[in-house]
Computed example of a mutant assay.
Amino acid sequence: MKIAVICANGKAGKRIVKEAVSRGLDVTAVVRGENQTVAQKVLKKDLFDLTAADLKGFDVVIDAFGTWTEDTLPQHSTSLKHLCDILSGTNIRLLVVGGAGSLYVNPEHTAVVSDGADFPPQFLPLAKAQGKALSELRQRGDVKWTFISPAGDFRADGERTGKYILGGEELTLNSRGESIISYEDYAIAMIDEATNGDNIQKRISVVRE
């Protein structure tokens, strides 16, 4: 299996590359600068400059793009649109590192995590930007996408437990009532989905067991 990880130098990207390489997959790190991952193959190019020819031949493309500043938040939508446009009509699967703010908190799917009174206000613009990108992604019937939301507490320095619960559109809690997952365990779930998953045109979520 050939996998491209876009924005591979990021916190999530590095761990996803490491997990994929550890399983013996053929991994290409797509980076703007020098490769900081364990991938042996590198495509040095900006996400927005990628072409259909660049991604031809891959089985799975993992989008680990992330940005947090106010002026760049719209790029969550524009970057995803660009990737969808160049993958349109192909069999290449697009797996997206998503956010937890857009997960539903009721069975009617009318309220999301970021609507909550206790949602940290500093993360609200990011959650809204990622939620908008997901809404737009849902309109793409021409791309084999999967949007993977982490748990609410997404820990860059969290431990690798090797265990997780696969959820759906709603915020899922573990047996201790927690919504938490480490970047390490998220990477496991991502590569599991890349190799075994069939959640085409669906949003799924993961939480530590």
Rank of each mutant, 00 (worst) to 15 (best):
V31F: 00
S114K: 12
L87C: 02
S102A: 14
K41Y: 04
N174Y: 13
I165C: 08
V21F: 08
D192E: 14
V21Y: 09
K132F: 04
I204E: 07
M190I: 13
L80Q: 15
R203Y: 03
I200Q: 03
L94I: 04
F65G: 01
T78K: 11
G116H: 12
G13C: 11
D63H: 14
I188L: 15
V60C: 06
D185V: 06
A64T: 13
C84G: 13
L25K: 08
I165T: 12
E169L: 12
D85E: 15
S182L: 04
T67H: 09
S135Y: 07
G24R: 09
G168T: 05
D115Y: 06
A4G: 07
R32L: 11
A156R: 12
Q130G: 01
G197I: 00
L43A: 10
F65M: 01
F58E: 04
F58R: 09
V38D: 03
T67G: 12
Q139T: 09
Y186P: 01
G141V: 00
T37Q: 04
V113S: 04
R208E: 14
T172C: 04
Q122L: 10
A151C: 09
L173D: 01
D49S: 11
Y104G: 01
D142E: 13
I191A: 02
G101D: 05
G57E: 07
F48L: 15
I200D: 07
T172A: 08
R160F: 15
K132C: 01
E178P: 00
Y164E: 00
H82Q: 02
I200E: 06
K14E: 12
K81I: 07
F154V: 10
G177K: 09
G131E: 00
T161P: 05
F58L: 07
G168W: 10
T78N: 01
S77C: 13
A8C: 02
K202E: 13
N91M: 05
S149C: 15
G162R: 05
P125E: 06
S175W: 05
I3T: 06
L137A: 06
L166V: 11
L50D: 09
T72K: 14
K11V: 08
W145E: 03
N174I: 11
G152C: 08
Y164P: 02
M1W: 07
